[in-house]
Each structure stands twice: as structure tokens, then as C-alpha cells.
């Protein structure tokens, strides 16, 4: 159990949720303090994605409470304060769209039905610069690599200039170059005071940024504290995940998978 943060941006207490008849969350407590970077770790099916999707209101709880910025989640309306990066392998849909068009849709949380102002356009441009894609603004999203797709999704979340970033597996399927850029982007955001909750499969290049790790197993929190030791402690046989820093040999095993 984490120490109670004085002014948490996310506060989850005893959350339970089910997908169909299967319980996925079985009493999860999760706190993210202001300016804190919390990693949510766990094996596939441990409930980490469900936990994050419950926080943003995409999965209904069967019990427990969730507060965002001190407001009960159901009554929370201030979505511009949250930047959400869903788990996707692509940022494109059935019709071509440019990087700018996709990123600009993230700004709608600030200006839902009004016309975009100069400030909105500047924020969209800044978001693209933050992920190093400003020069690709007019390019079709489909022309980008997997890692660049992920950067587009993150820029879209940053377009509303959020105080809290919630990211679901932002590093999945991302090449090394993009991973470094994403880590740098995140470092800049955290330095500016942004709080972050991110689901990760393994810590990777984000490791130095992470203040606290919450590990889920079968819908329960089994660890809440400093990030687990990289080598040894959590090594389980049969998981030869290649660490992104290592171009050559598999250095370490997957975390708790």
C-alpha cells in the first residue's frame, strides 16, 4: 500500500471490475500523487489495462471508488487536464489523415465545439514538436513507422496540455529510435510537473523516470513501491525479452511475466 499522497491526481480505492463473468480487478488500490510517475506492471491478463481503462471511465466498476483530481470519477468533467494514450498499434483509421489532423483532435478536450484559435493551433504544433514530428505534420499517418504512430498518439494526448498523462503500453512495438524520443518527451513533461500513470510490459528506457511501480497479478496489487530491481529479483525462466538498450544479446528477462 502506498503512502497517502497529500494531493493525489488519481486515487483508486478497492476497485473491483469484471469482464463478463470473469473478475478482472479484485480490490485494486492505486494512487498517483501530483508530479509523480507511476508504472503499472504485470503479466498479460493481470488487469493492468483494465485498471487504467477504469480510471478513465471506459470500464465500469462493480465496487470501490475512483477519484480524479479529488473529484469522483462519475462527476469529473475536466477532461482537458488528462492526456490519454490508448493501446494501439496504429493511429490511422479508414480514411487518410495527416499527422496534424490526428494530433489536433486531441485539442478538442479544450475546445469542444468552438473554432480553433491561434493558441489551439500553436498547442497542436508544440505537441508535434515535442515528439519530433513537426516536420511530418502534413504527411499521412499511414506513411509512418510503428514507432512514429505511437509518437502521434502521444502528441495527440499532449495537445490539450494535460496535467496528467495516462498511457497504456506506449512502448509496445516501438523501435529503439522512437523509444529514446518518447523517453525524452516524457522526461520533459515530468520536469514540467506533469503526473504520469503508465502501463508497461517492462521498464525499458523509461526506468530512470519512474518514481513508483505498482505490480498487478490476477487483479490484485502484489507490489507497490520502488521499481523492482532490473536484474535477478523478478527473473523468471522462459522469458527472453530483449532489452531495448541491448542491440545484441538478450540481456534480461521480462518483468514478472
Amino acid at each position: 500500500m502506498a503512502a497517502q499522497e497529500p494531493d493525489p491526481v488519481i486515487s483508486v480505492r478497492g476497485a473491483t471490475a469484471a469482464l463478463g463473468a470473469r473478475p478482472v480487478l479484485r480490490g485494486v488500490d492505486l494512487t498517483v500523487g501530483r508530479g509523480e510517475v507511476v508504472a503499472l506492471l504485470g503479466a498479460n491478463g493481470s488487469g493492468k489495462s483494465t485498471a487504467v481503462r477504469a480510471v478513465i471511465g471506459q470500464v465500469p466498476l462493480t465496487g470501490g471508488t475512483i477519484e480524479l483530481f479529488g473529484t469522483e470519477r462519475r462527476r469529473f468533467r475536466d477532461w482537458a487536464r488528462i492526456g490519454y494514450v490508448p493501446q494501439r498499434t496504429t493511429a490511422s483509421a479508414g480514411v487518410p489523415a495527416t499527422v496534424r489532423e490526428v494530433v489536433a483532435s486531441g485539442r478538442l478536450s479544450r475546445r469542444r465545439f468552438g473554432l480553433p484559435t491561434k493558441a489551439d493551433k500553436a498547442a497542436v504544433h508544440r505537441a508535434m514538436e515535442l515528439v519530433g514530428l513537426a516536420d511530418r505534420a502534413q504527411d499521412a499517418v499511414t506513411a509512418l513507422s510503428g514507432g512514429q504512430h505511437q509518437r502521434v498518439l502521444i502528441a495527440r494526448a499532449l495537445a490539450s496540455e494535460p496535467e496528467l498523462l495516462i498511457m497504456d503500453e506506449p512502448m509496445a512495438g516501438v523501435d529503439l529510435a522512437s523509444q529514446e524520443i518518447l523517453a525524452a518527451t516524457l522526461r520533459e513533461q515530468v520536469a514540467g510537473g506533469t503526473s504520469v500513470l503508465l502501463v508497461l510490459h517492462e521498464l525499458g528506457p523509461l526506468e530512470p523516470l519512474i518514481d513508483r511501480a505498482v505490480v498487478l497479478r490476477d487483479g490484485c496489487v502484489v507490489h507497490d513501491g520502488p521499481p523492482p530491481e532490473a536484474v535477478g529479483q523478478h527473473a523468471l525462466p522462459g522469458h527472453d525479452h530483449v532489452h531495448p538498450h541491448a542491440a545484441g544479446e538478450p540481456l534480461r528477462t521480462g518483468l514478472l511475466t
Partner: peptide, 21 residues
């Protein structure tokens, strides 16, 4: 008139919900 909003919803429905649309 609603092209920006309809674009967002049609591009990524879950994300659009989290923007409060």
C-alpha cells in the same frame, strides 16, 4: 459544421470519449 468532432469520434472512439466529447 461538426467535421472536427465527427472526425475525432470516427478516428478513435475511445480516445474521443476521454476528451469529453
Amino acid at each position: 459544421g461538426l467535421r472536427r468532432q465527427l472526425f475525432a469520434v470516427s478516428q478513435d472512439e475511445e480516445f474521443a470519449r476521454v476528451t469529453g466529447l
